[in-house]
């Protein structure tokens, strides 16, 4: 077994041994169930579109909550010294942490397929759009988590890690929301770096390689920042 999978397994175990995973998944189900249910029963709309509209916002809280302990807790408890003095590379530590949080996020996303099944009984949803939506959610969630892992390296304090990650995600999410105030050259840049803009493209059912490359770039960039931040190790 290599180092990354050892760390991933260990992290997954501690998510499920503590209440963390259950609380986060429970919270996610509660909010999505409420949104889905209210649209289905009150507005009589048998669609996942609203869900795909709201999940990026829920992930904005969920992803930093999943990742805030990743490195911060290791630093707080001193176990960072155990792991960093083992023959393990810093990027293996970061990747192990990223994969484990991604698994939890993917479980959360997968559970919502249940809503899709309900919809398919009472209507005729466009499965192509739904599958594209899920691909978009996983890419978007991955980008959030990479930012969250980076946020977790900058402080020993998990609350600070959470807030920092949330703030960075929010900046990237909102960057295309005020384009009408911006000069033209800037607005195209701001639109391109927006996490939401690319998700909307994918959620419409159009899987464009540019959108996929964008998310993969964000993931790689922030995991690289996280690795650098861990390597700096200004721990005192």
């Amino acid at each position: 077994m290599n180092n990354i999978s050892s760390i991933t397994k260990k992290e997954l175990r501690s998510y499920f041994y503590s209440p963390a995973a259950y609380i986060i998944l429970g919270f996610f189900l509660l909010v999505t169930g409420w949104i889905f249910g209210s649209h289905l029963f009150l507005m009589k709309v048998a669609s996942l579109r609203n869900l795909f509209g709201i999940i990026p916002l829920i992930f904005m809280f969920l992803a930093p909550a999943l990742t805030m302990r990743a490195i911060a807790e290791e630093r707080e408890s001193g176990t960072i010294e155990l792991i960093c003095t083992s023959p393990v590379k810093d990027n293996e530590i970061i990747l192990g942490k990223f994969y484990s949080s991604f698994v939890i996020l993917a479980i959360a996303a997968t559970i919502t397929i249940f809503y899709g099944i309900i919809v398919s009984f009472i209507g005729s949803p466009d499965w192509g759009t739904i599958i594209a939506g899920y691909i978009g959610l996983l890419l978007l969630g991955g980008a959030y988590l990479a930012i969250g892992i980076f946020g977790s390296t900058i402080s020993k304090n998990q609350i600070i890690s959470f807030i920092a990650s949330f703030f960075i995600i929010l900046l990237f999410y909102l960057s295309d929301k005020f384009l009408y105030l911006m000069p033209g050259w800037l607005s195209s840049i701001l639109r391109f770096i927006s996490l939401d803009y690319h998700f909307q493209n994918i959620a419409r059912g159009v899987i464009d390689t540019r959108d996929i490359i964008y998310y993969l770039s964000i993931i790689i960039l922030f995991l690289y920042f996280a690795k650098q931040s861990l390597t700096e190790r200004k721990y005192e």
Binding site: S18, S77, G78, T79
Partner: peptide
């Protein structure tokens, strides 16, 4: 390491 840190939940 100092303080003998371990993963307390394991």
């Amino acid at each position: 390491p100092e303080g003998s840190p371990t993963y307390a939940d394991m």
